[in-house]
């Protein structure tokens, strides 16, 4: 059956259609307080409305800037350590800071975007590991083999600390789960170390404790502990807590990377930082009108 334009006005079709439009209207009116509305003058007499959904896109620029500051802070911290550990010459240091200044944004864009567009406003990007791997590549390319070896040793020490923490937490989880003694905890630690994967650290940093498989440690458990081990309800709980202090270093976007007294070359442009409104700024629709900027000069002239 072919529909004609006039069929749209028949009650059977028009009623649900109008009903749906009304429903949509109500939803828009109701959810406007969760939206961020920006109004700016783009030309003489032209007003551009830029509506973005709050919680999803609101403050994405602000979050991107925060992520960029953190990423740059991590890079700068790494360079401070490179200076102490590898002792690069002025030329090597210059090469290193220049390559970092040119490439940091494009090489870490995924990490920055992951944080900026995080829909549930979580710190769920592992900035530290990403930066660490990238700086390792830059150091390998810019410095001598001997210096790179020293740097690798430095990274290994850090990895050892991370391994101790994640495995420690896994052992603590087992202690809670199975009621282990201290001697058993040490045995479980050894068995878990044998199965270590570097990816566990990233998992842990983003809020998930790697699972200690029952089969890995069952030989350490007594018969009664094995039976208790089948109780799935005794597992560790992980959750996200709102707010608090962050363990992130920071470097402004208009501040250059440095190794000792060597800064990145002046010809590499830096981002201009404009003061922006806080990321969680929200505005109601009726607040739009007073915010419209009216230019002094007469637009008709």
């Amino acid at each position: 059956m072919k529909l004609r334009r006039t069929d749209l006005f028949r009650p059977r079709i028009a009623t649900p259609l109008v009903f749906a439009v009304c429903l949509l209207g109500c939803l828009v009116v109701g959810s406007v307080d969760a939206q961020e509305v920006q109004v700016q003058i783009v030309g003489e007499g032209d007003v551009q409305f830029n509506v973005a959904l709050g919680g999803v896109m609101a403050g994405a620029d602000g979050r991107a800037e925060t992520a960029q500051r953190w990423v740059r802070g991590f890079i700068q911290n790494e360079f401070n350590n490179v200076e102490r550990v590898c002792k690069p010459s002025t030329k090597e240091a210059q090469a290193l800071v220049d390559v970092a200044e040119r490439e940091w944004k494009s090489r870490l864009s995924n990490t920055i975007r992951a944080y900026a567009e995080s829909q549930n406003q979580r710190i769920n990007a592992d900035f530290e590991s990403r930066v660490e791997r990238l700086v390792q590549i830059w150091v390998r390319d810019a410095l001598s083999d001997e210096q790179y070896e020293k740097w690798e040793q430095e990274i290994d020490v850090r990895l050892a600390y991370r391994k101790r923490i994640v495995i420690g937490r896994m052992v603590m989880d087992c202690e809670r789960k199975y009621g282990l003694t201290h001697a058993q905890m040490q045995e479980v630690e050894k068995l878990t170390q044998e199965r270590w994967k570097d990816s566990w650290w990233s998992m842990y940093r983003t809020g998930t404790l790697p699972e200690t498989k029952f089969s890995w440690i069952s030989k350490v458990l007594s018969e009664s502990q094995r039976t208790a081990g089948t109780d799935r309800a005794s597992q560790v709980t992980e959750h996200f807590m709102g707010g608090g202090f962050v363990d992130m270093p920071t470097l402004r976007l208009d501040e250059r990377f440095k190794i000792g007294s060597v800064s990145s070359s002046e010809e590499i442009p830096l981002e201009k930082v404009e003061p922006s409104e806080p990321a969680d700024r929200k505005m109601l629709l009726f607040e739009v009108a007073p915010k419209i900027f009216v230019p002094d000069r007469d637009p008709r002239r």
């Binding site: 710190i123 603590m172 809020g207 709102g242």
Partner: peptide, 13 residues
């Protein structure tokens, strides 16, 4: 220290 309003991972150990 820097403060954030974001959610941060916590493990209930």
């Amino acid at each position: 220290l820097e403060y954030t309003n974001d959610l941060q991972p916590v493990m209930n150990w």
